[in-house]
């Protein structure tokens, strides 16, 4: 494995995690969380866990994001923190 790529992805993952929690719009938070899941999937693919990466790509970046968007659409986008 190439440690430069891994370090880069680890940094991106932390930025996305902080972003998903810090942003003041729930729809943006849902999308950032989807991006976070996809980066996590890349990290697992680098570690050789191909099955787990495949699951995360379909579940975390696909279905979870849709469920978040559906729930935010049915409730409210506004948040104070």
């Amino acid at each position: 494995m190439i440690w430069q790529i891994e370090l880069l992805i680890l940094i991106i993952v932390i930025i996305l995690a902080v972003g998903a929690l810090a942003v003041k719009d729930l729809l943006s938070a849902a999308i950032l969380f989807g991006a976070y899941s996809f980066m996590m999937c890349l990290l697992w693919a680098i570690m050789g866990a191909v099955d787990v990466a495949f699951t995360e790509a379909s579940v975390g970046a696909g279905i979870s994001t849709v469920l978040f968007v559906a729930a935010v659409f049915r409730t409210s986008r506004r948040t104070e923190d």
């Binding site: 995690a17 998903a20 929690l21 729930l26 938070a29 849902a30 969380f33 976070y36 979870s64 978040f68 729930a71 935010v72 409730t75 948040t79 104070e80 923190d81």
Partner: peptide, 14 residues
């Protein structure tokens, strides 16, 4: 620390 419930769920997933 987050007060919004959806934010709490995102934190749980992280």
């Amino acid at each position: 620390a987050k007060k919004n419930l959806v934010k709490k769920i995102i934190g749980m997933n992280i």
